[in-house]
Design a protein around this nucleic acid. Structure first.
Ligand code: SF4
Ligand code: SF4
Lengths: 138, 138
DNA sequence: CCTAAAAAGACTTTATATGTCTTTTAGGGG
DNA sequence: CCCCTAAAAGACATATAAAGTCTTTTTAGG
């Protein structure tokens, strides 16, 4: 359980790749896709989502492509994951206790809240800069 | 992402209900299902899995039913969840680094290992006894 | 106005989740 | 031995989501 989807995995690969490149240049989607070994059409969808969230900037037409929206040290893995996978929700009652009529006296409920907090904490503590760096830091 | 399935949610409800009852009695699946508001046929499948793992004991025929396999304080939420949802795996490279040819120099890889550890840690720290108790402890 | 490249959205295929149904096996009681 | 009860097993059905493709449109440069 709790498995990241392909989409999420591809998303991370793609943006980490971008984070490892000089920031003031644009890169072709087709090149990124080839470099990180992801179907280009699929990665296109993913980068469109990134673009809407401001994680990357897109440029159309000749000489167009993508560049990172912010400095890599200011983008966390949490943002990247949530941009394409949606919020991290171990159970629907975490979103809103009203989603389950049992939430009132349910002892399991707070456990999921803790899980959510821990996961978010880990992912929030990792930036694209660290992920794109040569040597392991984590 | 990381959402528990219905199956997992139902599984927890069912076994927590059982954990809140006197342990040396058997309970009808149909009664448990009604009490925790889960389709009986579905809960049957879930309890069959529990039975195989020894989390519950089953008795067939007249006067049959289910009882908890061990004392509630000796069953963790982690066991329950993994019994029906499978192991907690944020990404397939956590199972085996060989599942991804990039795992060698991938900085993301250890992050998923950390996530897995944190989640397992939280769930392992909660027992059915706590979950079945009247007052919240967590 | 021609070409390059992303945006948008419809579409297809595959896999997983969420059940249901039927038949079989085991156990207890008359 | 027969019958009734209840779980086990496994086939079956449906719905939803994941994964990926294709076509058309928009934007920008030269
Ligand atoms: S029963 Fe408890 S853990 Fe399950 S969805 Fe409801 S509040 Fe959450
Ligand atoms: S690229 Fe890294 S994080 Fe992704 S599956 Fe491979 S090893 Fe794991």
């Amino acid at each position: 359980m709790m498995e990241l989807t392909r989409k999420g995995e591809y998303a991370i690969r793609g943006i980490v790749y971008l984070a490892g490149k000089p920031m003031d240049k644009v890169y072709l989607l087709s090149d990124i896709a080839a470099a990180v070994d992801v179907p280009p059409t699929f990665l296109a969808k993913i980068f469109q989502q990134f673009s809407k969230m401001g994680l990357v900037k897109s440029f159309r037409g000749t000489g167009g492509g993508f560049m990172l929206g912010r400095a890599p040290e200011n983008i966390t893995l949490l943002e990247v994951v949530e941009a394409v996978e949606g919020p991290i929700i171990p159970n629907r009652c975490v979103v809103n206790p009203l989603n389950c009529e049992r939430s009132g006296d349910c002892n399991v409920h707070p456990v999921w809240a803790r899980v959510q907090g821990e996961v978010r904490g880990v992912l929030e503590g990792v930036t694209l800069k660290e992920l794109a760096s040569e040597r392991q830091k984590v």
